[in-house]
Design a protein around this nucleic acid. Sequence first.
DNA 1: GTAGGGTTAG
Length: 798
Amino acid sequence: MNALRKQASRLGEQAILKDFEEFRATDVVRALANFYAAQLQLCSKRVSASDFAVRMIHAHMIASGFKPRSHILNRLMDLYCKSSNLAYARHLFDEIPEPDIVARTTFVTAYSALGELKLAREVFNRTPLRVRDTVCYNAMITGCAHNSDGNAAIELFSDMKRHDFRPDNYTYTSMLAGLSLIAEHESDCQQLHCEIVKSGTGFVTSVVNALISVYVRCASSPYVTSSLLMDAARKLFDEMPLKDELSWTTIITGYIKNDDLYGASQVFDGMNEKLVVAWNAMISGYTHKGVVPKALEMSRKMHSLGIKFDEFTYTSILCACATAKLFSVGKQVHAYMIRTVTNPSRDFLYSVNNSLITLYWKCGKTDDARKIFDKMPVRDIVSWNTILSAYVDGARIEEARSFFNEMPEKSPLAWSVMISGFAQNGSGEEGLKLFNQMRSNECQPCDYAFAGAIISCAVLASLDHGRQLHAQLIQSGFESSLSASNSLITMYARCGVLQDSQDVFNSMPYLDSVSWNAMIAAFGQHGHGAWAVDLFERMLKEGIVPDRITFLTILTSCSHSGLVEEGRRYFNSMYESYGITPGEDHFGRLIDLLCRAGKFSEATTVIEKMPFDPGAPIWEALLGGCRIHGNIELGVQAAEKLFELIPHHDGTYILLSNMYANVGKWADVSRVRNLMRVRGVKKEPACSWIEVDSMVHVFLVDDTNHPEVWAVYEYLEELVFEMRKLGYVPDTKFVLHDMENEQKEYALSTHSEKLAVAFGLLKLPSGAMIRVFKNLRICGDCHNAFKFMSQVVGRRLL
DNA sequence: GTAGGGTTAG
């Protein structure tokens, strides 16, 4: 009891408790009943802190031997449901011999809100028809609609009509709102609209609001032309006899959702008394559409008009600052908030602190973000997820992992962030492991989780897994998911099946810049620079604005296909036409482009004229070019710079030794390899479980950015080197050609067999060889796979 | 006891 009391004072429930203590003296049952009813009423108004008080009052009821009548009992159960103490409520419920309809409806609502549709349905089904009423049907319909069971909602709707229950405003509102969330029920919404008009509820504000939001939602669907539907929504809005707060905000956010900020601001300007909610909608609208200055201007205007900011306003402004990385402005807003908000609620603390964390994270201060998190008196799921994303975003994968393990509650979002975090970090295997773990924890993967798992397959170049996941994705109903489809494009390309990438790309209902970037990259990786350029041009024609990633991708594609002119032109257009300042990564691609084409003097000029000191990516690009063309003098210079910048990077040694190997300077190759050994440079470990067959794909397809790829790359090159040293002229010309000039079409269309033949390694019956390669699924140890390969090589050579 | 808008995490 004392512990509870302590908690009560922390939650600010003293008022209730004081009344409570005073009342104990009297002992009249009727008065007690009134008192309980009044206290419970009080609790229901204090949403955030009522939990404890309810338990106190209930405990007192039991202690004083008070037997509550149904209305008090119902209220008690309702409060328990709303404060997530559903078990208590259910316990009470089960003890009532004949629970009334109010009690039953309470449970239908509570279970539905928790996503426990089956339990809700059970309570509903056990309610005899003679007891049922419209409210209880409404509650059940809302439950079905919110849990995306549109068909059940429709069935219930006709069921209630069959039994002569007249649908009311609540029914129509729930039906409309629920069905419009589910894509395949658009025509049902149209039918409902007709029925509403006939029923005479067509002018009821709440129903029209719901209708407007249906039109808005349909308008933002990728399958339709939004302007007509928005016009229809606007007509409904203009013609409605009585507008309430919701009508205004629904239409404003409707315009924002459909990218019509002008339309939104027009309606907003037409408001006589501008609601805080509407201001908030405008501010967040501008922020999300990337017009942060406008968002800040709105908040300044709001301030100068003396309109008080609420929790949502602060959160939105801080989010705007985070998006635009305006750290000092964000801090000012925070300071202003501390001055003006004297008594923040718990919900306020959550959201504001969460957006502060976001601000610090986006401004590159992850450790400070963590400090805020640690200091927060109360944290919610978003607080945890934000920190997790911050770690993943900063490639601090180990910290992310241990933070993830500490999380008290792992939402699907957290799982998917962590899964794609692993994948982005090159740990495809960890990503897939986690995805499977997610499923075995009975956590239904969402489309983002699938996307993470699919990217993991891309990293591993594990086509079989990728295809399996694609099938499961369709089974789970995520076929049209943007993020999952984007990851499929990348996965198929990395696994060497370009056609499948194109199929996914062409079948997508709508595309975002990520989709275009992925497809352009896919063409580029497969050596189809010209196709990549075509697609890029098509993207521009369709009015999609290219971003930094698009330019990285198109520059890489040009570079891999020797399209020097185009690459140079695109590089220049970056700033001139799109206002994007080229970063070091873009310069790196340009250098790569020039060096691959042998234009070393132009490359060195670019390096000299760059607006910043050249870092590792620049020297790596230069060294890479020197490797291809055997430009020893310049290559050595670049390697020296690299050794200064990143002393123990294995990639530098490997590039250097390959450069020597390409011009037949075997002594130098040995020298570099020895140097590596002497300096204790560790080679990145090879990935452990993919098939040799897949590795070859990775090696040929990828840009050699991943550690695994480096390992494979080095190993295969070593094999060729050994062969050459032994005076064997391997029939590998085109493979080497592939390596160096990225003409990968042939290699990609081949499988292990052709590759093996190409290496001149084997004249084994191809079937046997294929089986060895294909079945050599060395789970947990790829070294053995390589050992096998080298044994075969040895046999042939000796 | 039932419906509908604005915030922060991918």
